[in-house]
Amino acid sequence: MALRIASIVGSLRRDSLNRRLHDALLRLVPADLSFHDVPIGDLPLYNPDEEADPAEPVRRLKRAIAEADGVLFVTPEYNRSIPGVLKNALDHGSRPPGESVWAGRPAGIIGVSQGKIGTALAQQHLRNILAYLDMPTLGQPEAFIQWSDAMLDADGTIGAGSRAFLQGWIDRFAGWVRRHAG
């Protein structure tokens, strides 16, 4: 039986570099992992007053994470941190107190940007949040990727110059999930 991975892309842009990276990574995953995209763009802003009766998109998010054996975060960096939409999803999934769907789920973080340090600072902020949420998070190899048009081939697959590193990263993530899941 395949391990179920919830994948969350922290960008809402139609032509997001991180969405493109995410979709290309899915072509590299081992057969024993099954990836499921978890949309976060339709979540209402987190409001503690609505915890007792959350909106359907919040219930959908919580079901998807609760059913997952692991979580892949593919995030851009906005103003040296994670996008607000991603923080909003993390907040929804962690509430109400004592009912976090994140706790114990192994996680991996990867991201791409046009800047030279990739998404290093966003990933560090996300690691701090995931530590608080009790999510064991893959530490190595880190993947602070600077976008290059050569990263993906015309058909959206990982280009030759990036394939070995990204295959190695996804294989390490798969091993991390296998070791920590259930």
Rank of each mutant, 00 (worst) to 15 (best):
P141S: 10
S81D: 08
I158V: 15
L133M: 11
P141G: 07
T75E: 04
H22M: 05
T137Q: 13
L86E: 04
K116C: 07
R95H: 13
P136C: 11
D153Q: 15
V58Q: 11
Q124C: 04
G93C: 03
W169E: 14
T157A: 13
F173G: 13
Q114D: 06
A122S: 15
Q124H: 04
S16D: 02
R105E: 10
A107V: 09
D171I: 04
R179V: 01
T119A: 13
L138H: 05
R179G: 08
A2V: 09
G111W: 00
A174K: 10
V74W: 01
A89W: 00
I5K: 11
M135S: 03
P57R: 00
A55E: 04
K87A: 14
Q140D: 15
I170D: 08
R4K: 14
A181K: 14
S94L: 02
S7M: 00
G156Y: 01
M151K: 11
R179E: 12
D37T: 04
A52G: 13
V85Q: 07
P39S: 04
I65V: 11
I129W: 12
G84N: 08
R14G: 12
A150K: 03
N47S: 11
F173Y: 08
G108T: 06
R127S: 12
V112P: 10
G70D: 06
S34Y: 04
Q146G: 06
A120M: 14
A160Q: 11
D171Y: 00
G104A: 05
P83E: 04
L43W: 01
V85Y: 00
H36Q: 15
S162T: 03
P96D: 01
P30C: 08
R60G: 05
N79C: 02
S113V: 02
K87C: 11
A64M: 07
S11Y: 02
G175T: 13
L166C: 06
G104E: 09
A150T: 13
G104C: 06
H92F: 05
G70N: 13
L33E: 12
H36P: 03
A2H: 15
D42R: 04
A154R: 10
R13I: 00
D91N: 12
S162I: 03
I8M: 10
G104D: 07
G93P: 00
S100H: 02
G115S: 01
Q114Y: 00
L126D: 10
Q124R: 13
A143W: 03
